[in-house]
Amino acid sequence: MTTLYLERASAVHRLNPVTKLVALLAIIAIVFAVPQWWIPLGIVVLVVVPAAVLARVGGRLLRLFLILLLPLLVVLFIVQGFFFPDGTTVLWQWGPARLTVEGLVFSLTIGSRLSALVLGSLVFVLTTHPARLMTALTQAGMSSKIAYVISASLQIIPAFQERARSILLAQQARGLEIAGGPLRRARALLPLIAPLVLGMITDVDERSTAMEARAFGATPRPTSLTVVDDPLSERIGRWLLAAAAAAVIVLVVVGVIA
């Protein structure tokens, strides 16, 4: 398995995945609704980071922040800080680059929202085992077909990467050139992809036979061996979170928060 999930014993891990998903969606809805840049930042500092620390995934979150998010934030501040189309209050200018107040505020707004979106999602993924997520979502009414596709994809990724690597090695041993110009390298991809596709098409018959032999799709309401706890407190919590998000959006739309 190749997901970002980290096994820990924590209250965040124990929550029903649906509750965590609703919390994540509520956070995303709120940070993208409110215009103030400091609100998303406040949510990151007061909710997302403490949740990560509580779940004992803070170190990994920091590393992923540095790898995934920080480069984007740097690019964002350069592009919109210096080249914002609607910037009027110029602080500094050099050639076509104009550092403007409007550009900085815009970068802050986008940057803090993006941080809340990405870090919140990361905490969700870091603390939620995909198997438990799929079971909980299926219990909540999601189609077992979607659960099947997601689970199967996650589990065959390692085998496929292995196959891709061995094909790459075999091709290199036969003198395949993977250096040179972009077009040449793109052409080099072809002998790599073709065997993977051939395997995919020849395997599909056996794979679907195996699924059908086990009556997959025979009933719209299958039972489940594993059950994810869904206490009343969490169900109430989910409704409260959804209501809070809806309230914020309404307040923004009618202009109370502006």
Binding site: S153, R185, S208
Partner: peptide, 28 residues
């Protein structure tokens, strides 16, 4: 089901080739 069982492999193909493209340093 026959179509459904094609999809996970296609998804993994997307990801494997996408990563390979990045590794090869292609501007695509």
């Amino acid at each position: 089901t026959a179509t459904l069982s094609l999809i996970p492999i296609a998804i993994v193909l997307n990801i494997a080739v996408g990563q390979l493209t990045a590794v090869l340093g292609l501007p695509l």
